[in-house]
Write a protein that binds this DNA or RNA. Structure first.
Lengths: 215, 215
DNA sequence: AAATATACTTAACACTGTTAATATTCAAAA
DNA sequence: TTTTGAATATTAACAGTGTTAAGTATATTT
């Protein structure tokens, strides 16, 4: 039955086309512009057709959130070359921040908005699912790196996972405040010494200096 | 002209009633339920009447955001009793976290959502305003405390404002990840040792331990 | 050829923020 | 005391949003 397969493939194609269109609108015009009706208009289908391929909006949002994690993952794999775990940890921080600044809409979807997690709760798992696979995988690589740092004598007396969460929170805090404009409003009318670099960079450097001294 | 004054007061009263109603809906049912139409229905006025007292929705959202800062400020003033700046810094962190957990909707309005800052940008200041008065005031008290810590020998070699931003980011990062459910999803299916306390508490304690060692 | 399954659309529901035009109210001026 | 005019409030509408029930048209199977 080759015909059935061809139809199946066509169906997969349209599902992919919807996602690509959503991604394009999202990347170009942000979250606001990414409505089901606008996606439908872009691919010249009726809005209800979208519902034949995605359960609801949170389903599309979750798929976009996954695309974001692919982008971040691509950046992280290049860091596996960095041998020394502490150097790698520092590079991960820089990469994470750079990703957040260059893909702020994706960052929001991945680490700030509730919608993707809502989708996981209401449409997937339901008690059995592993919570949040994308976030888990990313957090795991951080835990591994920090564990290796500890083998080199860093962060003594700190439980690995707890310390990993602490590191993530710090960097995420900087990114969150920056991406949503809070940092900009605080920096305004307050000279943050060290001309040339941003307040965020300065704070991140301060953080690295802090970590460095924990050996 | 006593009549004019009475009308003025009535006008102020209605403006306050709108805000109180918004606050009530917001506190009880969250951001979703706080629409202009629902506020109007609650006070039995037409939705357009709201626009005679508030420019637009972001105006109401900004007013609510200010209410949130009043609540946080009330909690912070009691900490001025704590004499030793480092003890005060720790207490500030705990208070901030507790506030975020107990008033997560307000926390979102104050430190996560863009809308209140959008209001400042488009309806106020416009080049001359001081950016974000409420955020500024809160951040200033943190800067002051950290400056006093430095006088006691803490955080040597770290620029005050930069380090204050670092501390804020860390605690905000923990709150942001918790309030939006990301932390919960990560902790799920991953035993975070130290039974009894949450992963967040554990990380915060790890942070305090880290700061303590910086003397 | 008739029955059935698939893919898609139209129309509608129940919301959202916001605005223009209209009506009501009520103190001040003629 | 009647008229005027500003302040206050409302109705109706616009342009959106996500989502669903019902209907259509096309292609496959019986």
């Amino acid at each position: 039955m080759g015909i059935k397969e061809r139809k199946e493939r066509h169906k997969e194609d349209l599902k992919q086309l919807i996602l690509d269109t959503a991604k394009s609108l999202f990347t170009r015009y942000g979250y606001e512009a990414t409505s089901i009706r606008k996606i439908a208009a872009e691919i010249e289908f009726s809005p209800t057709t979208i519902y034949l391929y995605y359960k609801d909006k949170s389903d599309i949002i979750y798929a976009l959130h996954q695309e974001g994690f692919k982008l971040l993952s691509d950046r992280f794999v290049t860091l596996s070359n960095v041998e020394h775990p502490f150097e790698r940890l520092k590079a991960m921080g820089r990469t994470y921040i750079q990703f957040a600044l260059e893909n702020s809409d994706f960052y929001e979807l991945m680490f700030i908005m509730r919608e993707p997690l809502d989708f996981l709760d209401t449409h997937c798992g339901e008690m059995d699912g592993d919570g949040w696979p994308e976030g888990d995988a990313t957090f795991n690589s951080l835990i591994m790196t920090i564990m290796q740092c500890q083998e080199y004598g860093y962060f003594k007396g700190h439980e690995t996972k707890t310390f990993a969460l602490l590191v993530w929170s710090t960097v995420h805090g900087l990114c969150s405040l920056t991406v949503h404009g809070h940092l900009e409003h605080i920096v305004k009318n307050r000279q943050f010494f060290d001309s040339g670099i941003s307040a965020m960079e300065a704070s991140f450097n301060s953080f690295l200096q802090m970590l460095e001294s924990m050996k």
